[in-house]
Design a protein around this nucleic acid. Structure first.
Lengths: 168, 168
DNA sequence: CAGCACTGGTTGAAGTCTCAAGCAACCCCT
DNA sequence: AGGGGTTGCTTGAGACTTCAACCAGTGCTG
């Protein structure tokens, strides 16, 4: 069976997206590493915790919102715990569960780090676009996520839930 | 100074993009790992080589087209060489340079693997979009890449070179 | 209650990527 | 010709991620 290749337009768009997939996370990682000694994954988890009223989340929920596997979440939180930014508690309702809790130091870290991170996101993602393009992007990516994560196991679910806030 | 946070719309779009940044590479990696015992990075490099008339590229050029650092390219090619898919030659015009050359086995690997990979890209990126959205995506990502890679050191250059595009 | 499957989370080893250092060939200048 | 700086690439160590066990607690079934 003859495989269906991409048309030149499709190919060009895909190559650009592929470049974005490498360069954008790398750029954000670099900024966080330099300014806050944090991994992008580590920062994201701290940020997710900081948005909760109790500043805590179940490991599984944290993993989902960070688009990470349970294993990755476990390793990342272990490192943040060693840095004193997070601590773990056994979960009351379910003895198997663990609660990742932001420490005061962790909260301070987020407060200190978030502006620089948001600034970089703005520079790289928001500001380059013309009015209207952000909404286009949102719609396009939403469609891709429908296929990538049809069960909405990952961050998508957090969107539906949290949107009212302007930033936690 | 009061930091400028993201508006709810901006935040929603960004969270979706962040999810895409994790899930899309992971999905492609999974497919390649399962069907071809290849890393996404490894496959990309093989594919780049396969598109050259001589089936070879300078390491630096290969790294650029794969959006990888020189170091990463070196490690990945080292592994592909161990697998017999690529070999290295000293470069004739410049004694410091190395040429990564696709072996026959490497060529066969690409031929066998490409259809399944392209199929997956199609499923995840091309097919979910409505007519017109692909062009929008291309334009949007192009703007981001202008900021991420202003010198056009990475894959962008390959686009300008290989594709007489319909878009500025 | 015992048995059994499943869920939530962790662990360690193996693989991948990054970072800084290093080596060799090239270039330029005298 | 012969330094000194630069470029092209590699290397090894350390950090991060993945994968496949694994353990403990839960919940269902009988």
């Amino acid at each position: 069976m003859e495989p269906r290749w991409l048309t030149p337009d499709q190919r060009r768009a895909w190559l650009r997206v592929a470049a974005l997939l490498e360069l954008l996370p790398a750029a954000l990682d670099t900024q966080l590493q330099r300014d806050a000694d944090l991994t992008l994954a580590g920062y994201v988890m701290l940020a997710m915790l900081s948005e909760q009223p109790e500043r805590s989340l179940r490991m599984s929920e944290l993993a989902a919102r960070s688009n990470a596997s349970p294993s990755r979440a476990s390793h990342v939180i272990a490192k943040l715990e060693k840095q004193g930014l997070v601590r773990r508690e056994r979960c009351a309702e379910d003895g198997r569960g663990q609660l990742a809790v932001l420490t005061d130091a962790g909260w301070e870290k987020v407060v200190a780090t978030a502006p620089g991170h948001v600034q970089r996101v703005r520079e790289l993602v928001v500001d380059p676009l013309e009015p209207g393009q952000l909404a286009q992007l949102d719609a396009i990516v939403a469609r891709m996520l429908d296929v990538l994560d049809p069960e909405a196991r990952y961050a998508t679910t957090a969107l539906a839930r949290d949107i009212p806030a302007s930033q936690g």
